[in-house]
């Protein structure tokens, strides 16, 4: 099994240790060797891209260049980090002049970006390197009968020519836990995370629409693979009573948490109590 450069970004370790822990535990159980990258931090997120394109490119090219030193693929649990790295990779491969600019900056830090590294979201690595069949073998506690709606996250799916992500793989990964994927009309729609700094009511509205749509479609809980999306769908739900007078109580789980449960891991190992909307209903179901 190959080793991976694990790029955490800043949001997961700061706000979602439950995501981090469940990912590491699932990876360990499946024999994935995730090694934290050294000397890296934030990807800058779309916000940096919006105001300082060259800075953003350079920050991410630096991360890629560091990974190039040991040659292992980068794996990240965050859609924002994934998009930043993927987009940087894609853009620099197609733009020689920016490539030169970036490398002249990196040179000052003693680095060179070549564009030889692959970037993958954690769930892609799960899917392609471990494979559905291998993972299924580890499912001891199938989530049969539970309906899950998936929020994939925009920056994982689009632009497709940059990210190269196929949403079906997450469907398969969810299905193999025994759960049923519940489709809902606005599955492509954004969670609203990016607009939070400039228009909070709008961001909340978008989160609310998604939760409402999932709930109406009959989902028992939601699956996400990104801290920012998780924040929108999970945390914002608590405020909906104030802003909309609506209560949905739709638990939002990070995918590794779901998989961990199906693999028979204990809720405490994966920080389920840190999820804002209590996931008791699932636990009830599993123990029943």
């Amino acid at each position: 099994m190959p080793a991976y450069n694990l790029y955490m970004g800043c949001s997961v370790p700061a706000n979602y240790p439950n995501y981090e822990a469940s990912m590491l535990k699932v990876a360990l159980a499946l024999g994935m060797e995730l090694e934290y990258m050294e000397n890296v931090a934030c990807c800058g997120s779309p916000n940096l891209r919006a105001i300082d394109y060259l800075g953003w490119l350079t920050v991410n090219a630096r991360t890629l260049a560091i990974a190039e030193e040991n040659g292992h693929d980068i794996v990240t649990p965050c859609n924002g980090c994934f998009a930043s790295l993927k987009d940087t990779l894609h853009h620099l491969k197609h733009d020689e002049s920016d490539m030169k600019k970036v490398n002249s900056e990196l040179k000052k830090l003693g680095l060179t970006f070549k564009g030889t590294i692959k970037v993958r979201h954690f769930i892609e690595a799960l899917y392609t390197d471990i494979g559905v069949e291998e993972i299924r073998k580890k499912v001891t506690n199938p989530l049969d009968g539970i309906g899950i709606s998936i929020h994939y996250g925009c920056h994982l799916m689009r632009p497709a020519d940059v990210t190269g992500f196929r949403p079906e793989i997450l469907d398969e990964l969810v299905s193999l836990t025994g759960a049923t994927v519940i489709e809902y009309p606005i599955w492509k729609q954004c969670c609203g995370a990016t607009v939070l700094p400039v228009n909070e009511p709008l961001a909340i509205r978008l989160a609310r629409d998604k939760i409402k749509s999932m709930k109406e479609a009959g989902a028992a809980f939601a699956a996400v693979v990104c801290p920012a999306c998780g924040n929108q769908l999970d945390l914002q739900q608590l405020g909906l009573k104030d802003s909309y007078g609506e209560v949905y109580d739709l638990p939002v789980l990070l995918y590794p948490q779901i998989l961990a449960l199906a693999m028979g891991m204990d809720e405490s190992e994966i920080g389920l109590e840190m999820n804002r909307v209590p996931a008791d209903t699932i636990l009830d179901h599993l123990t029943s």
Partner: peptide, 11 residues
């Protein structure tokens, strides 16, 4: 592994 120095330098 976290270190924000590189980013700060760049920015």
């Amino acid at each position: 592994g976290l270190s924000a120095n590189g980013i700060r330098e760049i920015l």
